[in-house]
Amino acid sequence: MIQLDSVTKVYRMGSVDVAALQEVSLSIQRGEMVAIVGPSGSGKSTLMNVLGCLDVPTSGVYTLEGEEVGQLSDDRLAEIRNRKIGFVFQTYNLLPRISAVANVELPLMYGRTPQRRQKALEALERVGLSERAAHRPTELSGGEQQRVGIARALAKSPSILLADEPTGNLDSASSGEILSILLGLNEEGITVIIVTHERDIALETGRIISMLDGRVVSDEPVGSASRNGPTAGRGA
């Protein structure tokens, strides 16, 4: 469902061009659970942003469910983000002034989904946070905030969940909770792509893509995790 062909992303920093992604080609099938690893600055976030349609490649082709993303307008990209993709951020990115449930409602609001409140509450229930629905993000612990973030990503039943270092700011207990939620969602059939620095977490997924200097340097299935469907992928 996800297909990258020689995708390059160049950022212009003043007069210098920084190639955050260089000729990345890979494909990810529906229902996979993939970990992306690599040192800081290797282009993991850039890759996630391209996959999440938050940014378009400078060159190369990104095809998402048969649609070529590079050609689409900003508004069409917004629509795809809204309908197909759930994004989980390292820093949660919850709006501080509104309640947890109102945060979860955001994608439903922009997608004009009916019965918003009910669906948002269901999503909060899936991450075990029903009783915290009325609280503001500032009244929640880091782990709880990230669970709200996951509920928000889930609310519109996306086919892909992208999590960029979702446990990067959490203690190990909270990290474990987040990981088990993500594993559970993958078991329900959602494609999950997760950027992580933690080996333990990467080993729980079905496939590990390693990056260095904007390139994919290795792309291998995790031996024990073949339960998550096909793991064939193309390395760079």
Binding site: L54, R81, P107, R152
Partner: peptide, 16 residues
């Protein structure tokens, strides 16, 4: 600005 980024990531269009 960050709030605007979050809203856009969640599917807000320019017009919204």
């Amino acid at each position: 600005t960050r709030e605007i980024g979050v809203r856009k990531a969640m599917g807000a269009k320019r017009r919204d």
